[in-house]
């Protein structure tokens, strides 16, 4: 038998992707030029402003910096904040082409 929602009100279990894969709502996706990214060029934890500013929490604080495109909404804040302009926002349709 299928498992049914046990809640009477709008309550759900906190989980990644509770609302589905929202990343496909976006038109733009961030692309990192790793040769410009500060922690990667310095080889140590630094900067991570993209991680700090991302409103969706989909950027990792790691080397290399990774973005989970399944949930990235394509807002471009990371690209705006990145000091060496290592992040570029690219149209998804263009990528597909």
């Amino acid at each position: 038998m299928e498992q049914r929602d046990k809640y009477i009100s709008g309550i759900c279990t906190p989980a990644i992707g509770e609302a589905g894969k929202t990343g496909d709502w976006s038109d733009l996706k961030p692309v990192i030029d790793h040769s410009k990214c500060i922690p990667e060029t310095k080889g140590k934890a630094a900067c991570f402003l993209c991680w700090l500013y991302c409103p969706d929490g989909v950027v990792t604080m790691s080397i290399p910096v990774e973005i989970d495109l399944d949930y990235c909404k394509g807002c471009g804040i990371c690209a705006e904040e990145c000091p060496p302009n290592a992040i570029r926002m690219v149209r998804k349709v263009e990528c597909d082409e």
């Binding site: 309550i11 759900c12 279990t13 906190p14 989980a15 990644i16 992707g17 509770e18 589905g20």
Partner: peptide
């Protein structure tokens, strides 16, 4: 728990 997030027009499976 997450309280009152956005609900969708359709029913769906959670994570």
């Amino acid at each position: 728990v997450t309280v009152n997030p956005v609900f969708f027009p359709w029913r769906r499976e959670n994570a």
